[in-house]
Design a protein around this nucleic acid. Structure first.
Lengths: 330, 330
DNA sequence: AGCGGCATTGAAAATTTTTCACTTTCTCGA
DNA sequence: TCGAGAAAGTGAAAAATTTTCAATGCCGCT
């Protein structure tokens, strides 16, 4: 028995009841070995804490990778995020892997695949981080950052726009403009984005003794926003102002108004949230809360690069202030 | 001297005038070795064709990577492409690396970084492939596919929508609708996308004895399309139909028309190219040529996965037919 | 000038990977 | 069904690589 306590392939061979060359084969991607035996050997190696030198080199090289797990790449908000994030990651000599979560799917099914290549960090956006994945990342010393999202059920790093404050800003604006019959089009009810924007908005109205006059859910998408807009503008006593908790739904609402001869903002003020590029198009000129995308990307990478923040730590949340961007829709 | 001709670290040590352990250190990312000596050893190793087992394992694992090099992630056409591509790549057990080219920058500066991790394939989109990068990919046995682009100066694999045929389809449609004062808003003059769409359009008009009544360039972006639209609609004798060689510019043109009280399509027919999601919004209902995105992604991956197509081959071009998508703008 | 700390280095020890002969299993054709 | 050949898997041993450790050189400080 050697005096050193550093795990060796010999110990793994003994624990798994195979030869040393089988252990070497199990760690070599192309080497012929029975699939079940490979699994057994790798499990024994993990229990002992052994990684072959070849595999260790591959993992050190993979530490130059950050993986973005995205639940909604089709949302027009994300090209800007992705472009910025990719460029910042590259500038630091690293590479960005993009993993698109299939619709109606959570990260559990993808955890093994995402972590197989041992990225140095994982950024999750427009998706729910599960406790299984959080645990697996901690076990492999991989930092996780939620981007544009906050979760209360898991202690994890997060960078997000202050949706609550943004909702308050919108409420205040509409009250200042004299509106009292105020509507609200929400996104998806059990998401923090919807909840926080709605909560801030509602509280400011309530502080002024105003209740939401009418509301509907729009699924954060154009068709949903269109339907919700139709419902609200079909009322006998329709609202004179509507806050949509994202821009796409606000643009759809403006299209509904236009089709009904309702003038924006004279007959109906419309406010969105995000400041996607289309919000500034002349057809819309949408007043909206601009998310601080540059700062969000920068802060996410700062959390990842901060040596004092460990993958096993409880997590830090950084809320960044959005800015009300006034255009013609209000 | 062993009878086998497989390169060894011993040969590299001899060629570089160092010890065998220095060779091992040169291939180990964290090992202490003088920087210049490391470069010298790695150069000698490359000349001999030697790669250490550890480094080879890292490269084999990296063969599970496809890198997308993108010149314009902000274009609303690309979220769909990216989402589809990422999902197809994942489904085959691989990962997608995204490299965003900085504006006004070509792939030469990024070649070393892109190829350092030895992806199994590189897909280039909205960017010009340079001969330096083509050569480097061939040398490292990495397949390259141009996506949504064709280049004449380099023999390389390419998958693209048949822009020429799409331009012809648009020309035919406008002629059938009785238009004779026909305008054209182009993108960027020295891009194949612009040139082929323009060429097909022009030829169909010429075959009917019609010349383009008015034209301008719009940079493939909303502000440029808006300016071009203003120029054309300010004419004494403005066109009654305009083909914009991408959708964004067509949407901007529709905004200009609306602001001037010009009814679309009664006073001005507008046709775009791409079928981005915004084209179907009720504010626009744009007639456009839909790019076959699903098929393009599928064909690009087919080229990559076809064992009969070698990285050093001359290249195959697959042109896929777009489909005219009729909406209210025409 | 001397000492300590750090970086680098090659020889040698330790470890890992590859080779090769052997065994077992699978496939195909008669 | 049977037999031959091919393919897959295996461990022992040879070959190759990685790690260890002692030595050297350099730098900064007292």
């Amino acid at each position: 028995m050697p005096l050193t306590n550093k795990p060796t392939a010999k110990q793994v061979a003994h624990a798994a009841g195979v030869s040393i060359s089988a252990v070497s084969r199990a760690f070599s991607p192309n080497a012929p070995i029975d699939h079940q035996k490979r699994k057994r050997i790798l499990a024994a190696a993990e229990a002992i804490g052994y990684v072959s030198p070849a595999r260790r080199t591959a993992e050190i090289i993979a530490e130059g990778t950050i993986t973005l797990v995205a639940g909604d790449l089709l949302n027009p908000f994300y090209p800007t995020v992705l472009d910025l994030l990719a460029r910042r990651v590259q500038e630091s000599g690293r590479q960005l892997v993009v993993y698109a979560l299939p619709a109606n799917s959570d990260v559990d099914a993808a955890t093994d695949q995402i972590l197989a290549s041992r990225p140095s960090a994982v950024i999750v956006t427009s998706a729910q981080l599960t406790s299984k994945m959080a645990r697996a990342c901690r076990q492999h010393q991989i930092k996780v950052v939620l981007l544009n999202r906050v979760q209360r059920d898991i202690r994890i790093n997060a960078v997000a726009c202050d949706n609550y404050q943004g909702g308050r800003d919108v409420g205040r604006l509409l009250l200042e403009r004299g509106h009292r019959k105020i509507g609200f089009i929400g996104g998806v009810a059990n998401t923090s984005t919807h909840a926080e924007r709605a909560r801030g908005f509602r509280e400011v109205l309530a502080e002024a003794g105003v209740r939401i006059h009418a509301q509907a859910l729009g699924d954060f998408e154009y068709p949903g926003g269109y339907r919700a807009g139709q419902a609200l503008l079909s009322m006998n006593d329709p609202p004179g102002a509507i806050f949509c908790c994202n821009d796409i739904m606000a643009l759809a609402l403006i299209d509904v108004a236009r089709e009904r001869g309702i003038r924006v903002p004279d007959d109906l003020a419309v406010v969105g949230f995000d400041d996607i590029p289309m919000a500034s198009w002349n057809a819309y000129r949408l007043t909206t809360v601009r998310q601080p995308v540059e700062l969000m990307v920068q802060e996410a990478l700062s959390l990842i690069d901060d040596p004092n923040i460990k993958p096993t730590d409880d997590g830090i949340t950084r809320m960044l202030t959005g800015s009300l961007t006034l255009r013609n829709s209000s």
